[in-house]
Design a protein around this nucleic acid. Structure first.
Lengths: 128, 128
DNA sequence: GTCACTGCAAACGTTTTGCAGCCAT
DNA sequence: ATGGCTGCAAAACGTTTGCAGTGAC
């Protein structure tokens, strides 16, 4: 069914190598010099496929979607000043059981999104 | 500064009365019969204002934003079959401290988004 | 009377889709 | 040679904005 393509591999490899949590367009811009004919639509298509395959996750933090190829259990923090997303490497043991006690259905997964301010932005003027 | 308006009160009241977590358009459609001249842009503008005032929260569950006027501490579950959002009334004590231990910045808030299947959808055929 | 508010329409940014051609299998 | 993939352009989608006019204070 699924064939390989230079473009799909490039999108996945690019995401694996980066520690930030790029948007589709950031991936596109980063690959464009290497694959000059690459189209943004192809990046979107491949990101969806990779997400469906469970190889990457989409972080829906509000407006623009960001992506992450690190599938180990961890959570994210959204810096409300600069909009960047940071990893928080914690496991929340028991949080699914806790939720299941109060919910009359099946819980498959959870994700925690913290909001706050990253250390870079804290360092800059605390004023407006 | 902030004046009252029939439209803003209507949006807020509508959201308070509903137990589902409507989108902006669902609120708009529900108010249109009562306020026939109401515009979708006004609903969006008022939802943003109410959010800024801290009277409602926006649930960013992926594509379309949903809103909730219940400001008590609770979390949400997104049913992956029907797309509805359900309340899960739990407090995750200590989860901010836990995150703060692993993050070099300031954490203001957290939200947990569970994914799974609601009891209604579980009841229906488990097949595709 | 002032100024925040509304309605409308047009603009916006992100994401999806239709299509003809291409390339991996 | 098949059919999943690509690039392009256009469309779709949710949301925001500019503007002239209205209504709350």
């Amino acid at each position: 069914m699924t064939k390989h393509s230079r473009q799909r591999d490039a999108v996945y490899d690019n995401l694996c190598l980066r520690k930030d949590h790029p948007t589709a367009e950031e991936i596109y811009l980063s690959l464009k010099p290497i694959l000059p004919t690459l189209s943004l639509a192809t990046v979107y298509r491949n990101l969806s496929m990779l997400e469906d395959e469970g190889k990457i996750i989409r972080i829906g933090s509000g407006g623009t979607a960001r992506y992450d190829a690190d599938m180990s259990e961890h959570q994210h923090l959204l810096c409300e000043k600069c909009g960047k997303v940071f990893d928080i490497m914690i496991k929340c043991d028991g949080i699914i059981d806790k939720g299941a006690e109060k919910f009359n259905g099946k819980i498959d997964s959870y994700s925690v999104l913290y909001k706050g301010c990253c250390s870079d932005c804290l360092g800059k003027t605390n004023n407006i």
